[in-house]
Design a protein around this nucleic acid. Structure first.
Lengths: 189, 189
DNA sequence: TCCTTCTCTTGACAAAAATCAAGAAGTTAT
DNA sequence: ATAACTTCTTGATTTTTGTCAAGAGAAGGA
């Protein structure tokens, strides 16, 4: 079983035949550090699984830059607004380190749904999962203090804090780098 | 064309045959003011379109209560964590006023996907839409001040502020009722 | 290797928002 | 209609978080 097949099956039960067929639609793609997967304003017409490396989803505002999300292995990389609704992206997606992806283009993507019925179900569950994750984030931002949000992320992905510049994680947590730095200092004691 | 068919078709292009067939799977449901659609801890096994009235999605914490979302006509009502993943709900869903819904139960729901292929696509786009909405909310909470978040919601749904107790909207916007009250006072001048 | 650049930390201060408390206004039930 | 509740507003104060500025440390390029 290939790495991609493992990703797909690790999320949801899919018949083995379909698994191979689905995986065959995806092509390997390299992304060098600093390279863009997507630039703000473009319409995203690809969907990828991230195999290795890290990506950063961020929005450039006049006054500041907001990191929305750090993409880690075994997750989707795409902009749903582009892929589904043909809208230009607000956020850019850039490689924080060299990345290996498995990518499918929109035209193949539509065939996938027609030829392999289980793909629809798979994808639906995948998106639903993304939605519930976002729901959690909204809840955290509504209900938790900066310190509690830090503890939540650190509890889920302690490794991220060694791999990703802290300023990006601070932004993703809705606080300034200074505040994150102070919270981390406090955690030591 | 029934009201439900109109809701469905207003979102996405679906063949007319399928539209009627899909709509037939849904049953009308009444919800009295204060009545619960779902209580925290239950596993949600229904999906509804909201036809009239308002619903409130909220989480009860030991110290406080957090309103996650106000459900308005023409939107989904459900807990995806329950419907897709069989997990108990963190949030309760309660009618703020008398509501009319169109509801489908999980068992019929699975048939729907098997018998009417376009439903999968429709639903996928619907969930994707919910996801991008949540993405916007996360972005707003990360990037905007309390005042900007108020203006955003007021710009989208000015009517809500006359229908929903302000304390719930304040919570949904990630601020206290006092802060919302002061922001609204400031907007008058 | 040295120099530049980027990242993180720290302190002093400012701003935003939360908390506490009281009272006004509006609803609901009897 | 009145009493009991709930909701909203306002002021005073505290807490949290952001801003500005400086410097230490680490990473990367010539």
């Amino acid at each position: 079983m290939t790495a991609l097949e493992q990703y797909i099956s690790s999320f949801f039960g899919v018949p083995d035949n379909d698994l191979t067929a689905i995986a065959n639609y995806f092509q390997p793609q390299q992304l060098r550090k600093q390279e863009y997967y997507l630039k703000a304003g473009q319409v995203c017409d690809t969907l990828s699984f991230q195999h290795s490396g890290l990506t950063r989803f961020f929005v450039q505002l006049p006054e500041k830059e907001v990191t929305q999300w750090i993409g880690t292995p075994a997750y989707f990389v795409t902009d749903l607004n582009g892929l589904f609704f043909g809208k230009p992206a607000r956020c850019s997606i850039q490689a924080l380190e060299d990345c290996e992806l498995f990518t499918i283009h929109r035209k193949d993507y539509q065939q996938l749904g027609e030829k392999i019925p289980s793909w629809h179900e798979l994808e639906k569950r995948f998106i639903a999962r993304c939605f519930t994750y976002m729901e959690d984030r909204v809840f955290n931002l509504l209900a938790m203090s900066a310190e509690q949000r830090y503890q939540w992320l650190f509890g889920m992905h302690p490794g991220l804090f060694n791999q990703v510049p802290l300023q990006y994680l601070a932004s993703m947590l809705g606080m300034t780098p200074e505040t994150l730095s102070r919270i981390r200092k406090k955690q030591l004691s």
